[in-house]
Design a protein around this nucleic acid. Structure first.
Lengths: 267, 267
DNA sequence: CCTTCCGTTAGGCTC
DNA sequence: GAGCCTAGCGGAAGG
């Protein structure tokens, strides 16, 4: 069990204080910022921002978060977005003021500063968050591939994927091969982002390997949501084709598939 | 002084619990969500998101915030942006699970759902935040316009703004029109940020409309703090001029103006 | 309800 | 490091 309001071992992982007198709060905060800890404050504050634009936020109760990477978030009781914020790499300074506590978070490039004055602090939580969990946003190249295998029309009418899994040798990209409606062999390289000329070069070297072993008409197609302008000439030169395919389209195919699977069980 | 961990009157404004057993935590949360309270949880969680895309976030300690308007934020220990989130108007449901607590936040349009499973809770804070303070963002396009109307020299010497408020038809941008020192008609488009080629296109279509009705020399000027490199050729082609104007300069003009107004009352 | 465009956009990726 | 573009963009304004 993680430590919370009690010290636990030498370094408490999360130290929570309520109704802390200002003087003590300042000490806690100074230590926390010096140690680059995570800091969360709920309290009544006034916020000034100056930089690309400038703003003033008058007294009110908000949640303020200072992360160890120097990012700052100030949240009002409603709304998805922070009312004021600062991206990572800010320098944070705490000062005792007659009226309360003044915290400034400054960055350069662009030069911007937020100053937060607290005149009342309900909750201070300082410590560290242990978070190494993987984050994965799906609709990856793998999912794009899966979508194309389900609905080859996404690439072109009459396409028949042949494959599976087997490559001449791992070419370092997500691909499909198959036959088009005329019986030509087709190799598809999938990119989740706008395709660069590198993609074309990669696909071409793959095609070369195949040409050495197989003697039949061969087409190379890059499938991606977009084609980087600079890649255009390379495609020309290598006679590689480009097909635009948005991840959302893939997602909807996969979702439909999923829904169909579900409906089998539900029916 | 605001209530914190102690009940204060009938309804505690902020109720902070650390090391709460899961069963009690569920009760606290259910009540809080029913009352549409503000809820903040620091604890170890797993997050699944499904909607326009989908994502999985494996176990780790995060800060999770549920606001009274139904918005949800999940923050990792680094980064300005939430790793997962939900905009306002979500339906939030709490369930006890063997392993912990499952909270789902769902919305339709688009249909999206986040489910957060906690297997460990370090801190639960529920209550309400009293925040009616005014938020003012200074130096908007409207303010830049105002500054130029006060001090047309900001754009060029001899400029005389003509109008007010009247447009050929709303072209969707902040503008001024007037005459230059030679009597040519001038249309100014103001951008608060670096002007893109879209700005030029927009201004040009506006100029075209005017040219159809008026037959006299006409100049188009984009006023902005910067010009996006990619917009340069478009300006060339459309014969649109660019004048650099920093928001700070506008701000100081407005400030001077304000000071003068004030001084009238003070003198 | 839709589209279009702005943002203290932030963040990622190419050049 | 600078320029350019995307985003689960969100949000506002206009139609």
């Amino acid at each position: 069990m993680r430590g919370t309001s009690e010290d636990w071992g030498h370094q408490p992982l999360l130290n929570v204080k309520t109704n802390l007198p200002m003087d003590e709060a300042v000490g806690v905060l100074e230590n926390a910022f010096r140690a680059r800890n995570f800091v969360l404050i709920i309290g009544e504050c006034w916020v000034d921002y100056d930089g690309r634009a400038s703003s003033t936020l008058e007294w009110g109760e908000r949640v303020t978060i200072f992360k160890k990477d120097g990012s700052v978030l100030i949240h009002r009781p409603t709304g998805y977005e922070p009312v004021n914020w600062q991206p990572p790499k800010c320098a944070i300074v705490v000062n005792r003021r007659d009226s309360g506590i003044l915290i400034t978070a400054a960055r350069s490039q662009p030069r911007e500063i937020i100053s937060i004055e607290f005149r009342n602090v309900s909750l201070v939580a300082v410590g560290s968050l242990d978070d190494t969990g993987d984050f994965a946003l799906h609709v990856t190249e793998a999912q794009m591939k899966q979508a194309i295998l389900i609905a080859p029309d996404l690439v072109e009418a009459g396409l028949t994927p042949l494959q599976q899994e087997k490559h001449v040798e791992n070419a370092g990209f997500t691909d499909i091969y198959g036959e088009d409606k005329d019986g030509s062999m087709v190799v598809i390289e999938i990119k989740r982002n706008a395709a660069t000329k590198d993609a074309a070069i990669q696909l071409n070297s793959y095609l070369d390997k195949i040409r050495k072993r197989v003697n039949r008409p061969l087409r190379g197609i890059i499938v991606a949501p977009d084609l980087r302008k600079s890649a255009q000439p390379m495609l020309q030169v290598l006679s590689i084709e480009f097909v635009k395919l948005d991840p959302e389209k893939c997602f909807s195919v996969l979702k439909t598939q999923k829904d169909m699977k579900l409906s089998q069980f539900i029916s």
